[in-house]
Design a protein around this nucleic acid. Structure first.
Lengths: 243, 243
DNA sequence: TGTTTGATTTGACCATCGTCAATTCAATTA
DNA sequence: TAATTGAATTGACGATGGTCAAATCAAACA
């Protein structure tokens, strides 16, 4: 794990660019001071583990730059990639709020700069500012809604439909927001990780991509994806969706 | 929907038997008064819908007696049964806390008695009592952890292993808590609903049950299940678990 | 430029599981 | 008791998608 490096990025919570996009936006100056004191900045290189499934919760992580993947692995080594965490997102709050050990692990997928806020600080802030709790409640509840949707999708949709859905989500997050017409964007993930996001194997992922190309739904060159018509992708996911 | 029936069950939040097991246990008398005022009791017969996916959130439901199933259904009519809600559980809080419409529907599976607390009341309580928010945070966060685990299980385990796991969960909730030796208990669900809890079809459910019987793992007579040795069931779910 | 290494793709195979249709079972009612 | 109804089971079939092994590709490096 790389050491703290105050040269780049913001020096503290007051000047942090990401703050307005995080839960902390509801804190007043005194509370920000507390937050800042309970804070420690860390840097990770791709592949480095931020926390492991089963580890006791160390606090809440605020991602400043880079990208983190949240994975859950079973005894046989099978795993799913549950979340991609990007700047402005918080990480590790589920375990903290549930009062549990981590039930998933977090790994840097790119060079990543993160602040860790220790458990007592977060707990104290939560106990004194109901608005912060409400913020987290909203976040966790929406996340639960998404997880439940994923359970339904995985149970009822084909690999191809799930992949179409994943592409739409990734476009929404990493691509330009043109709702129709041709779209081009960069996948932030390897084939292996794409596969584990939709609960399938790299082999099936490959074949699905190939089939989609031959059907003219999308073109893949390495991590670059070209989609001639977004609407076609939507119909892959919702067969009865009409324009 | 049956009308309010004050003859049976508790008359108000102060005398409610279930209260100590709910989030409301952190409220003081003044807050309980408010809760009680924002409350309305309803009764439902099996099959009756308490709320529908897409409906605007009406509040938080407290289950006093009976049982409710929370289902999520897609455009093609495929559905999964996400939760079984039993007395002392709360229902519908996810949508309320996320500030969303319901993203699943709730249906009475047995004759059921529920209190509804309207949105403004819950919101007011949450804004003034951080402890209540923390309670809900814990509940939603643990629920999210379980949902994420389910995503992993559905992606990596066979129907049979998932069913073994479901049986263990149901035994833990509805059976006697003997950790070893023979166990007998009543399934609270039809074959169809068992299937939709693990994301499969009634046909596959039937065949899985048949296979488990012929393997001596369990015996099924209608809704009565007899398990000669719990540990065998655990091994179905975790093949490398050792005694 | 050749080599190494890991990612990706392809091929071959087949197990699991979903689908559809028919049958059996069980509970309720005429 | 016979008839009705919906749930559960069984059979037959095939598609989807997983597994394993081999081949190919691409990036980093000597």
């Amino acid at each position: 794990m790389a050491d703290q490096n105050p040269e780049q990025g913001s020096l503290n919570c007051f000047t942090c660019q990401a703050r307005e996009r995080t839960e902390w936006c509801v804190l007043d100056d005194a509370e920000l001071e507390l937050l800042n004191k309970g804070r420690l900045t860390r840097e990770y290189l791709p592949g480095e583990i931020i926390f492991h499934e089963g580890d006791p919760c160390r606090g809440v992580f605020c991602l400043e730059t880079g990208m983190v993947g949240v994975r859950k692995t079973d005894a046989d080594g099978n795993s799913v990639l549950l979340y991609l965490v990007t700047p402005g997102d918080t990480l590790g709050y589920r375990a903290m709020l549930a009062g549990e050990d981590y039930r998933a692990s977090a790994e840097a997928l790119e060079p990543t700069r993160i602040c860790v806020i220790d458990v007592p600080t977060v707990r104290s802030l939560l106990e004194h500012n109901p608005a912060l709790g409400l913020r987290y409640l909203k976040r966790v509840s929406m996340s639960l809604g998404n997880a439940e949707e994923k359970i339904l999708h995985n149970a009822t949709l084909s690999v191809r439909a799930r992949f179409a859905h994943l592409l739409l989500v990734l476009i929404d997050k990493y691509g330009e927001k043109s709702s129709d017409g041709p779209t081009e964007f960069e996948l932030p993930l390897s084939r292996h990780d794409l596969a584990s996001m939709i609960g399938t194997t790299p082999e099936s992922m490959s074949r699905t991509i190939k089939k989609m190309e031959s059907d003219g739904v999308a073109r893949f060159a390495g991590r670059t994806v070209h989609i001639p018509e977004i609407e076609i992708l939507v119909q892959e996911f919702e067969p009865d969706h009409y324009v």
